[in-house]
């Protein structure tokens, strides 16, 4: 565990030191101040009363321009999820380690007979339409909703069977609670019907390099033009 933390810290440090561009983003922040201005120009982050005159603080919406470094993550980033995942390559990661790549994510399970093969096909169809030069900025992430059966070994086999062995394909096994949480972030619904069978929503989600949800495609075998457009836009930016 300690080692893992060290690795995590190092990888964060490395990714921070690599970045050279800064993206700017305007944030609206509420500032509170004392109506009597007892302590000259003193502001508060939270509502309450002035320490000197006890009058209620007044809120002031200020357009505050805050610089978000590329290394930082915004409020809506999936990288706030701290659960641990096993990859099909036998590594243990947090989602944040996928930062820096555009992510195309889908939830499947490998014993699935009905919808998942088509979802996997959809993913491959999308991948096939992305130029090689964009692929290196991309990760296609397939998250299992069946952490009991979909071990890293099983996921690896699945990757081989489906010829999804290149670097851009990532398969993840989480904990039951981590998977439930992740599904809820994606608004994916699922229910175990029997030990080897699940009902689930068919949603493919696209995230930008900071882990913010940009686009969702719902349904099976639907027109993926918009999804591809979103991916191309994101991967051409970098």
């Amino acid at each position: 565990m300690k080692n893992l933390k060290l690795i995590l810290m190092l990888s964060v440090l490395i990714s921070v030191s690599c970045k050279n561009e800064k993206s700017t983003r305007a944030f609206t922040e509420v500032i509170y101040y004392c109506p009597m201005n007892c302590e000259v120009d003193k502001t508060y982050k939270e509502p309450g009363s002035c320490l000197m005159c006890k009058m209620d603080l007044i809120a002031n919406q200020q357009e505050k321009s805050r610089h978000l470094n590329e290394g930082e993550i915004s409020d809506e980033s999936i990288f706030h999820l701290t659960s641990l995942w096993n990859t099909h390559q036998g590594e243990i990661i947090q989602l944040e380690e996928l930062k820096g790549k555009t992510l195309v994510m889908v939830m499947i399970y490998t014993t699935c007979k009905a919808a998942c093969p088509r979802l996997v096909t959809d993913m491959r169809n999308i991948e096939a339409q992305i130029p090689k030069s964009n692929i290196e900025n991309l990760r296609f992430v397939l998250v299992s909703i069946d952490p009991t059966n979909d071990t890293p070994k099983r996921l690896k086999e699945f990757a081989l069977e489906n010829k999804m062995e290149e670097e851009q394909w990532v398969f993840l096994q989480g904990t039951e609670s981590g998977v439930r949480e992740f599904a809820n972030v994606l608004a994916v619904k699922y229910k175990q019907i029997s030990p080897l069978d699940f009902s689930h929503s068919n949603i493919i989600s696209v995230f930008n390099i900071s882990g913010e949800l940009i686009h969702q495609q719902e349904g099976l075998g639907v027109d993926n033009k918009e999804t591809i457009h979103a991916i191309l836009e994101l991967t051409s930016e970098n």
């Binding site: 919808a115 439930r180 608004a187 699922y190 229910k191 929503s201 349904g219």
Partner: peptide
């Protein structure tokens, strides 16, 4: 509830969920 998202009745039930 823990698994509230196992109730598969989202907007258009035939579209995004395979068996609900």
């Amino acid at each position: 509830s823990l698994d509230f998202n196992s109730v598969l009745i989202s907007g258009e039930s035939r579209k995004d969920v395979d068996d609900d």
